[in-house]
Amino acid sequence: MAFYMFDVDGVLTDENARPDHDAVKMIEKLAEDGHVISFVTGRSRGWLGDNLFPLFRSDLDWSSLYCVSEHGAIKGRGTDISSWNLDDHYVVSDHVKEKLYNVSQKDEYNGLIQWDQTKESMGTVEAIHGDPGDKDHLNKTRQALRDYADDVESIATNSGNKTVVSTYGVDVIHPDLSKKIGAKWILEEISKPEEVFVFGDSGGDMVMAVTARDHGLSNITFHWVGEGDEPHEENITTVSSSNPYSEGTKDLLKKHIGS
Rank of each mutant, 00 (worst) to 15 (best):
D150F: 13
T163M: 11
D151A: 14
V198D: 00
V196T: 14
L145T: 08
D201C: 07
M208K: 01
D171F: 05
E194K: 11
L145A: 05
D176L: 12
T157Q: 11
D151W: 12
F199D: 01
F197H: 15
A212V: 11
E194Q: 09
D171Y: 07
P193H: 04
S178F: 05
R146N: 14
V198K: 00
D205H: 07
I190Q: 02
K180W: 05
G169A: 15
N161C: 15
S178G: 08
E195N: 11
D147T: 15
F199S: 00
E194S: 11
E188P: 01
A149Q: 02
F199Q: 00
V164T: 15
E189M: 11
T211W: 05
V172Q: 00
P175G: 10
A183E: 01
E188K: 10
V152I: 15
D201E: 09
T163S: 12
G200C: 07
K180D: 05
G204A: 04
V196Y: 04
E194L: 09
L145S: 07
A212G: 08
P175V: 13
V170R: 01
V170W: 04
D205M: 07
S154N: 12
I155A: 03
N161S: 12
G160L: 12
D176C: 10
I155W: 09
K179P: 00
S159V: 12
L187K: 02
A144V: 10
S202Y: 08
K180Y: 08
S166I: 11
A156S: 12
V172S: 01
S191W: 06
A156D: 02
F199H: 02
S202H: 09
K162T: 14
V198A: 02
K180V: 11
A212H: 01
D176V: 05
K179S: 03
W185R: 01
D171C: 03
D205K: 03
D176Q: 13
V196Q: 03
D201S: 06
A212I: 11
E153C: 10
L177W: 03
K180R: 13
K162S: 08
I155G: 04
V196P: 00
S166E: 13
E153F: 15
A156Y: 05
V207D: 02
D205Q: 06
A149S: 14
W185L: 02
A149T: 07
F197N: 06
W185A: 07
D201R: 06
V152N: 03
N158W: 07
A209V: 08
I155H: 10
K192C: 02
S166N: 14
V165C: 06
N161F: 10
K162M: 13
N158I: 11
H174L: 10
P175R: 13
T211I: 09
L177Y: 08
P175I: 14
G200F: 07
A212R: 05
N158K: 14
I190A: 02
V152H: 06
A209W: 06
V152D: 06
A149N: 04
E194W: 08
K192P: 03
A183H: 03
S166D: 08
S159W: 10
R146F: 15
F199K: 00
A212Q: 02
